[in-house]
């Protein structure tokens, strides 16, 4: 069925509403999982099992005083969090989050509307998502440079370093699966894995490299150089408060979801039916697993120094990724 404008708009609203809600819920999950792994309880007192903690945090963020430092560049300072949040959601527009569905006809006004799995089904979906997520790092960079704070400048410099390091690895690691599938469209990845099985098993090296790159892309723990509290106070977010800071947070969690969805769709079989599980449940479980993996790693592993990150990306991961691409090419040719 053809995607109508109404269907695309509905999909966009679904992405915006649900993902930003999930991003808020992600903070709750992160606090809970980290707490359990440290034998604590986590948030408990707002609502049952602390479920309403997001609301309390939201109220706090919205009513907090919004401070702009005296010597800061006001325009860029205000712009930076918007870049992070906006690019995170733009990236999600090209990601198939749920399978296609048609709104049942008993619902008034919208009944019978076909909602596509992707808001913008462009043929080069995966490149678009990676490019948009890369553009998202302008948020921390500009934030760090605009705030006239030394910790901010260090955070911004680390952003540039991290970006230039991991971007090569992510691009090269995703290249081998692209060669196998022969398309850049995420829907084709999904269809390929329904016929030939999960790409995770045919491309294990690429999967691990992509996960590492994804952790660096979302500033998760082994690579959370940008805002590591023990070293640079809060890095790029030092001078931010209130909702501006909250937008950074929403962007970060939306990016985490994007990376989870990408690895689920590209490497873990997408939204195909799995054994007895229907497709939508299978993809939710896969996304949840990758999301949990991010929290799990944060609870377990220490983080690396910036020079170690550069060493890892340029001297170890990039050669491995290139070798992987070459081997894949030879195998495809033979």
């Amino acid at each position: 069925m053809e995607a109508t404008t109404l269907g695309v708009v509905i999909k966009a609203i679904i992405i915006l509403a649900i993902i930003s809600a999930i991003a808020g819920f992600g903070t709750y999950l992160e606090r809970k999982v980290l707490a359990f792994m440290q034998r604590r309880l986590g948030p408990m007192h707002v609502g049952p099992y602390g479920l309403m903690q997001i609301l309390a945090d939201g109220i706090k963020l919205f009513t907090k005083e919004d401070i702009i430092p005296q010597n800061a560049n006001r325009l860029i300072f205000a712009l930076a969090p918007v870049i992070t949040a906006a690019t995170a959601f733009i990236a999600l527009s090209a990601v198939p989050v749920f399978p296609d569905f048609t709104i049942p006809s008993w619902i008034p006004l919208l009944g019978g509307t076909f909602v596509p799995s992707i808001a913008a089904d462009i043929n080069i979906g995966i490149l678009f998502v990676l490019g948009m997520m890369a553009a998202g790092l302008y948020g921390p960079l500009l934030a760090g440079m605009a705030q006239a704070n030394k910790w901010g400048i260090i955070g911004a410099a680390r952003t540039a370093v991290q970006f230039l390091s991991y971007e090569v690895v992510t691009g090269l690691s995703i290249l081998a699966p692209i060669m196998i599938v022969g398309s850049l469209s995420l829907v084709d990845f999904n269809n390929y894995s329904s016929e030939h099985g999960w790409l995770m098993f045919t491309q294990p090296v690429a999967f691990v490299l992509f996960l590492i790159g994804g952790f660096a892309e979302t500033n998760r723990t082994p690579f959370d150089l940008l805002e590591h509290e023990a070293e640079v106070v809060s890095g790029y977010a030092t001078e931010y408060s209130g909702m501006r800071w909250g937008m950074f947070f929403i962007g970060e969690y939306a990016n985490m979801i994007t990376v989870s969805v990408l690895s689920a769709v590209v490497f873990m079989g997408g939204y195909n039916d799995m054994w007895f599980l229907p497709g939508w449940l299978a993809i939710i479980l896969k996304i949840a697993f990758v999301f949990f993996l991010m929290l799990w790693v944060r609870a377990s592993w220490p983080h690396v120094r910036p020079n170690q990150l550069m060493w890892l990306c340029w001297k170890v991961l990039m050669p491995i990724a290139v070798i992987n691409v070459v081997v894949t090419g030879i195998v495809i040719m033979v």
């Binding site: 999982v33 707490a35 359990f36 792994m37 440290q38 034998r39 604590r40 309880l41 408990m44 799990w296 790693v297 609870a299 377990s300 592993w301």
Partner: peptide, 26 residues
């Protein structure tokens, strides 16, 4: 060794949730 680290935290989580080794005092 990295996976040993992962297992340690997962074990702590399982123990805390299901075997009553939660150390938090409200």
């Amino acid at each position: 060794e990295l996976f040993v680290g992962l297992w340690v935290t997962l074990r702590a989580m399982i123990n805390a949730l299901f075997r009553g080794e939660m150390h938090a005092v409200k």
